[in-house]
């Protein structure tokens, strides 16, 4: 892992820590109060706040998770070089696109 990736992974962890807590609180709140899917969508649709919140979450998680997966692959399989970088770029884009698509749909 390069120092750049290392720092990026720590920074995204720093960004995600409060987001995860809020996300968990939201889950607990939504399930405890028995909000229906319509009620939830009613609150998220058109909300700049939730679009920004989960948009940032998706970007940070995609970066953080890809660097982590890359490290696991390097250590467990010994895979290195351009092929690995390309595969990781694809993984990152897939997570990013799927995540952002979900954010766009519910907000």
């Amino acid at each position: 892992m390069s120092l750049r990736l290392y720092v990026l992974q720590r920074l995204t962890a720093l960004v995600m820590a409060p987001l995860v807590l809020v996300h968990l609180a939201v889950i607990v709140y939504a399930t405890r109060t028995g909000l229906s899917a319509e009620a939830i969508l009613g609150r998220t649709e058109g909300s700049l706040f939730w679009a920004g919140f989960y948009g940032l979450f998706v970007v940070a998680a995609a970066i953080h998770g890809t660097i982590g997966l890359r490290t696991v692959l390097v250590e467990m399989t010994g895979w290195r070089g351009g092929g690995l970088d390309l595969a990781m770029l694809c993984f990152f884009l897939a997570v990013l696109v799927l995540g952002l698509r979900a954010v766009v749909i519910v907000t």
Partner: peptide, 9 residues
């Protein structure tokens, strides 16, 4: 030492 083969690993 600041690489994956160094302390970051």
């Amino acid at each position: 030492v600041a690489s994956g083969s160094g302390c970051l690993g």
